[in-house]
Write a protein that binds this DNA or RNA. Structure first.
Lengths: 129, 129
DNA sequence: GAGGATAGTTTGTGCCACGTACCACGTCAA
DNA sequence: TTGACGTGGTACGTGGCACAAACTATCCTC
């Protein structure tokens, strides 16, 4: 079970490294990943990321300043805002995901095919609930 | 393989939660964990944590200010410093580790005994190199 | 000894996260 | 309809975290 903690750090290291190639932090990568199939408001975004709404403002603002993300006023709520990827943001998100899956599979190269399948399958059991 | 990323975030969330109970960040927990069986210098500490030496100064200073850690001049090198746990720091480290292993095993409760064993064994294969 | 390497610290910058206070809009009830 | 209250977001201040560059003090080598 200590191995699981170690493994999580190793994965975080991969995420940080891939992010660093594009000048993105881990949280920014998560942001882009979440927005790939959603256009949430700030509050909803905060729940996905487990962050306070006041943390989201700066996060989105920094991403917006870099042209990765876009705020548009909510059509149904004058107070609200919808956050969406720009084309540049989407491109980066897809590219990042490819690199991440490549480096993760590379990490699991120490396992043979059956073991890898078994491992990821057990992992997804743990994650899904 | 997306499951592995998700799993790593879940584990990080556990670490952050246990840390928060004692007002510790994840990096502080790692610091205490490393010092449990070592008294490294600052540079060596930085390598264990994957951080620059200039990052270590503040990290150790904050922990020292809280009485968890202690700097002592190295006996063999007038420039060097050895970092060690104080009794309070050791108590916290042990307590934290117990809580973490408890919450991790709780996380793996969706698996039966054989599966869990298999899973952690595969994980340690990935980690050891 | 003098010159370069090494261990740590300092300083400045930027990101991240939080709590608090605040503004604008929405909603509900009298 | 018009308050009172709730809700979505932002602004601001604080503090931790991480880096790079500049600096100090010691060590080592010739």
């Amino acid at each position: 079970m200590d191995a699981l903690v170690q493994l999580s750090f190793q994965i975080q290291r991969i995420l940080a490294a891939v992010g660093a190639e594009h000048d993105l932090s881990i949280i920014q990568i998560r942001l882009l990943g979440i927005l790939r199939d959603r256009q949430p408001g700030m509050l909803e975004l905060g729940q996905h990321l487990g962050l306070d709404k006041s943390s989201i403002t700066g996060l989105v603002s920094r991403a917006e300043k870099r042209g990765l993300v876009q705020r548009t006023p909510s059509p149904h709520d004058g107070r609200g805002v919808l956050v969406a990827l720009t084309p540049a943001g989407r491109r980066l998100a897809e590219q990042g995901e490819m690199q991440i899956t490549r480096r993760i599979t590379e990490l699991t190269k120490a396992l043979n095919a059956t073991q890898r399948k078994q491992f990821t399958q057990l992992a997804s059991v743990l994650v899904t609930p």
